[in-house]
Nucleic acid binder design. Structure first.
Lengths: 182, 182
DNA sequence: CTTAAACTGGACGGACCGTCTCGTTTGCTA
DNA sequence: TAGCAAACGAGACGGTCCGTCCAGTTTAAG
């Protein structure tokens, strides 16, 4: 049970380090030095730099209200486009992107982190979208939410193609067609 | 320019090591020892274990014919379901999964590898699917191919939900609905 | 004031890193 | 077949980071 003061110092350190240097360069010794904390203190609470980073992201998202805001203007297509643009903006935000990629990499080799990530960051997002779809009359909201989110994530993950406005519009149109709603 | 004999020894070593131990545990020294090769020889040709692993996967896929086999029975839904099942089988094959996850993690921090991965492994796959869709009368084959593949990859990547037969069928149905083909 | 938990600072053996040197093998070419 | 250059094996090097340990200090709560 780290004290709150210690936690925030560590969170601040790991976030700044993750931003300014390359992903995967994080070391326990580096974080300890930056945070002005002994290694012992780190190992008491976290097993790895990935865990620290994840914890820091969670704390930050909790600070910033946390809840996902899904627009509801009445027009489903417009709302989905807005949501896509917002998601893309978050994924490609220079402040966030390296951190998210680090966590994504970490998830591949750490089942525990993957579960936390799913439950605490991904699930709320999907539920928000799913709810909006249900309100819009979609009969299979969970499946359609996945169909909506997956290609965005796919493009981001594999850096396959750019996120231009035309693609967003086309994508939303395809998803709505799959959902059998005008 | 490593000799062919050396290359295959190294490929064999990195593949076996990646299988039997955890992802990210790979080390240059470990690979060198397993391959019966000096570290110098590794560093002469590859900059990192990720690069070695990727090279090995490429070589293997080239050996095994490489080309993606997309079924074409005349029935698009049936073919897509078969393709989904085959893709899922490959992603979850105990022989392949750790390797693919290692490469996925590596891609997050290595733009060069990401580009190679896209061009040499992902693009052929997508083109194969895209061609089949075009033959099936889909007007936007590239977009639909992405819509088809992304959720499969999404589930695999985030280990979010199981790949049961019911989901595959539903997924294919959704994708076909989005493609405006019966 | 007392006390237990949390913390600092530093030392430790060990694993890998990436680079270097030196002597040997390999395979092509004259 | 003799020679030569490229590729290789072996292993030493200083360095970074790992994860754990200890002894002494600070913090916060009763």
């Amino acid at each position: 049970m780290a004290r709150q003061r210690t936690r925030s110092k560590v969170h601040e350190a790991v976030l700044s380090l993750a931003c300014e240097s390359r992903v995967g360069t994080l070391t326990m010794e580096g974080v300890a030095a930056r945070a002005g904390v002994s290694k012992q203190t780190l190992y008491r609470t976290w097993p790895s730099t990935g865990a620290i980073l994840f914890d820091a992201l969670l704390a930050r998202s909790a600070d910033e209200g946390g809840d996902v805001v899904v627009p509801d203007s009445g027009n489903l297509a417009t709302d989905l486009e807005g949501l896509a643009v917002a998601t893309i903006a978050e994924l490609t935000d220079p402040t966030q992107e390296p951190l998210l990629r680090a966590v994504t990499a970490e998830i591949q080799s750490n089942e525990g982190l993957a579960a936390q990530f799913r439950e605490m960051l991904l699930a709320p997002q999907l539920h928000g979208i799913s709810d909006r779809l249900r309100r819009g009359g979609v009969t299979d909201p969970d499946g359609i939410a996945e169909l909506f989110v997956a290609p965005i994530f796919h493009r981001w993950l594999l850096r396959s193609r750019p996120f231009d406005a035309a693609w967003v519009a086309t994508h939303v149109a395809r998803v709505l067609r799959a959902s059998s709603v005008s």
